[in-house]
Amino acid sequence: MAVIPMEYGLLLAGILFSLGLIGLLVRRNIVFMLLSIEVMLNAAGLAFVVAGARWGAPDGQIMFMFILAMAAAEVAVGLALVLQMYRQFKSLDVDSASKMRG
């Protein structure tokens, strides 16, 4: 079985993370922002898994389980906030929720 070099894996993770971050920064729709965060989380998870495979240690995969659990919790809270926000502002635009600006 051909071994994929670690650099490729990390590069992929970095590209995914950058895509997520750009998505987070350019989107105004809060649902897409949540999606972008998911991408970033998974990029981080991928980096862990790649690194774990490189050194043959199980820690990377365990860390990925943690990230999955955390992401699930985050989505639960995030979607609840999205629902609330939609009820309050009748919009999914995050810039509409700027009442408490200084």
């Binding site: 995050v94 810039d95 200084g102």
Partner: peptide, 9 residues
């Protein structure tokens, strides 16, 4: 105060 502009992004 200017940093608290309410824009999440």
């Amino acid at each position: 105060r200017r940093t608290q502009d309410g824009k999440l992004r």
